[in-house]
């Protein structure tokens, strides 16, 4: 299976073997005919009811989704034009989706509405509240407007430095936010969570709790040994080496557990796609 999953689409796509071309063509024709039959019968059954049009679009949608699903899955057999078409559609549609969402949800209410509130109110957001300080809002909104245009300058062939200004702003803001947050939520809070009594007692009976104690000791030993492993300023020899090795064991168990949980996630995603095919598309479950 050396060809499978390779990133060299050229030859296969340009000149698919006749048998494969036939296979894909017949699959497409078969699918389209079944689809046409199903939709025609659905439309006939519902007559000229206004809800029928909606149902028809839903039916078309489910068939479309099924083809997209099968198109992506077909890559498992081998790279093929059907998969590549689906992939190309995904790239185009998702880029437009993000852009449209950014435009209507953020740019219109948080930028254009400050620059030209009356126009925005007339066109898109009739209920937009009137600001108490429209002048200041407008003046302040020019900053992201200018920075935004400078950011888009990246697309221009020349003047690359222009886009560095907004980039510097984005990096600076992120750094300012993250510096405080990572120290507070991660460094300090996690250190505090590590430093805790090693001997545990049952809260209700106040008796010595063996397993809770083992847990507490394990937690502290785990954090310290893994940190030792990450500490490269001292050579990992002797006691430091042994601790670092314990740290590696902790990490391996951590990754093993993470792997198990990841597998679970992936399987769920596939299960949902099969559910869709069997239930919504074929109606056999």
């Amino acid at each position: 299976m050396s060809d499978h999953g390779s990133n060299e689409p050229g030859p296969q796509v340009q000149a698919p073997r006749k048998s494969y071309r036939f296979l894909w063509l017949s699959l497409a024709v078969l699918g389209l005919s079944v689809f046409a039959l199903r939709t025609a019968s659905a439309a006939q059954a519902q007559g000229a009811d206004p809800a029928a049009a909606q149902d028809l679009w839903k039916t078309i949608g489910i068939w479309c989704a099924a083809f997209m699903t099968l198109g992506i899955l077909s890559f498992l057999y081998k790279d093929n034009p059907f998969y590549k078409v689906c992939e190309s559609i995904l790239i185009g549609v998702s880029a437009a989706y993000w852009m449209v969402n950014g435009f209507w949800s953020t740019l219109v209410p948080n930028l254009f509405a400050k620059l030209a509130p009356t126009t925005v109110r007339e066109i898109a957001l009739p209920d937009l509240p009137v600001s108490a300080t429209p002048g200041t809002d407008m003046a302040l909104a020019f900053v992201p407007l200018v920075l935004g245009f400078m950011l888009l300058w990246r697309l221009a062939p020349r003047g690359g430095w222009i886009a560095v200004w907004p980039l510097a702003f984005i990096i600076g803001t992120t750094a300012g936010m993250r510096l405080v947050a990572s120290i507070e939520a991660d460094l300090l809070a996690q250190t505090v969570a590590t430093v805790r009594p090693l001997v545990a007692f049952d809260k209700a009976t106040e008796a010595f709790d063996f397993w809770a104690t083992v847990g507490a000791v394990t937690s502290v030993a785990g954090v310290l040994s893994v940190l030792t492993y990450f500490f490269f300023s001292v050579e990992h020899k002797g006691a430091v080496g042994a601790t670092a090795r314990l740290g590696v064991w902790f990490l391996m168990i951590t990754f093993g557990s993470a792997f198990g949980l990841t597998v679970m996630g992936r399987i769920t995603l596939l299960a949902q796609r099969f559910e869709f095919l069997f239930k919504e598309w074929l109606g056999i479950v």
Partner: peptide, 24 residues
């Protein structure tokens, strides 16, 4: 709760130090 949390806690502390240093 004990081993994976400890491992990830150490990694989180390490990343936090890295993020703080880079940001600074």
């Amino acid at each position: 709760e004990y081993i994976q949390t400890a491992g990830m806690r150490a990694i989180t502390i390490g990343i936090a130090l890295g993020v703080a240093a880079t940001s600074l």
